[in-house]
Amino acid sequence: MRELFQLTVLAYGAATITYLVYFFSRNKRVRGGARGLLLGAGVLHTFYIIARYLAAGHTPIASNHEAVSFFAWSLAWGFLSFRWRYQVKNFGAFVSPLITLLMVIAALSSQHIVELPPALQSYWLPIHASIAILANGFMALAFCGGVMYLLQEREIKKKHFGLFYSRLPSLEALDHLNQHCLAIGFPLLTLGIVTGSIWAKQAWGAYWQWDPKETWSLITWFIYAAIIHQRLTVGWRRRRAAIMAIVGFSAVLFTLWGVNFLLGGVHSYAG
């Protein structure tokens, strides 16, 4: 299983390098290779998660290693799912390094299979955790789109055409991407919080107990709700939407890690 994981990390790494080569060289043959590699890595990763599920006997989203690995998985498949919906030029050069980074973080954390405390042994675990992390995946895609938007906008505004102007898609396409990711990510995020709350009622008898993770996911939810509300009412789009996607994603990351390391609480992974 360890080998399978390492192989997956390597495959993501290879896909990232190929995407970057395509980004710089613009040789279209390379792009095909990059897509193939990423798809292959995504498939390997799926096998790894299944293998881990079989070995642990519960959904493998319980330790930091598992959560981050699942995060990378949802990012990879979220990105791949876009492939047949619509194309965003050179999106892969931004998404794949993030996937690889997450996988490296997963590789560095303890890969031991944790024993779940009785409170967590529930069918709500797979539902709540996977929905919440899938939401993170789409927020991460929106983040990548936001970074691309700001880079492209900067070159157009400053009239300084460097690396990005010809390589990145139009501002319009990047703004659409942002909107599209949030349109999928936000409902998932909402559902993640709702299912978590139901599970909390079942496990601890209260829907909400202001555990730091709960508080921070609520803050994150409010940030995204504000983005969407502002976009629909006063036209917070484009540059401001891109900045907010980056701010929102920092909140996502803080909810995922910052809370565990700095604040503790019931969500701190066992072990």
């Binding site: 492209q152 157009i156 102007y165 898609p169 139009s170 501002l171 319009e172 396409a173 659409h176």
Partner: peptide, 9 residues
């Protein structure tokens, strides 16, 4: 070309 980079279509 610039218009296309800003507006897409």
């Amino acid at each position: 070309q610039l218009a296309k980079k800003i507006f897409g279509e």
